[in-house]
Amino acid sequence: MQAAVSEAAERDRGIVELLRTGGEERAFEELLRRYEGKVYRLCCALLRDRSQAEDAAQESLLRVWKALGRYDGRASLSSWIYAITRNRCLSALERRRTLESLDGLGEEAEPAAPGGGEPYDGRAEQLLALVERLPERLRRSLVLYYYEEYSVSEVALMLGCPEGTVKTALFRARAALTEMLRRRGLDDPAYWREDAP
């Protein structure tokens, strides 16, 4: 784990070095290759709208690229990139709230399902609906945890909080989901098995 972190930090340093030595194109390619997906997934988790997430990811990556020359190395490159992305998403959320209040229609856009593709069956839809009911802080941690394939440290970096906070959020999210399942009579483990009829 430690080796993977230092390897990632080394690659990040490589991007900054490439930029400083005039290898702009390669630095840009490397930046996109390493962070395009992560930035997009963070935007998806925060904004809950694929189209807005794509716009936000584009603007965030562009901002990162333009500010990369001023990156001072005090924080890790990934933390810095995620902070820019989070700020961009917060602005988008603020703008969305303003537009909704101006519209005055009282109709909130139905949030897109956080799943990556088509739900595998009706149970997935039930589960997604329950995930959507979680408090925002817990939902973000849970969604990113599965998007980032169980990496608590990556989720903590993305959300800009300590790993302990993410672990607590995951624990609470699972507990809340279990409670919701119990209340709805869906707490039979066999019901949630992949091969269940």
Partner: peptide, 18 residues
């Protein structure tokens, strides 16, 4: 139930394609 839920979440919250 926790294990089954974890599996269901893994299948449901799949990483979105960039």
């Amino acid at each position: 139930l926790g294990c089954a839920l974890d599996g269901a979440l893994e299948r449901t919250l799949r990483r979105p394609q960039t």
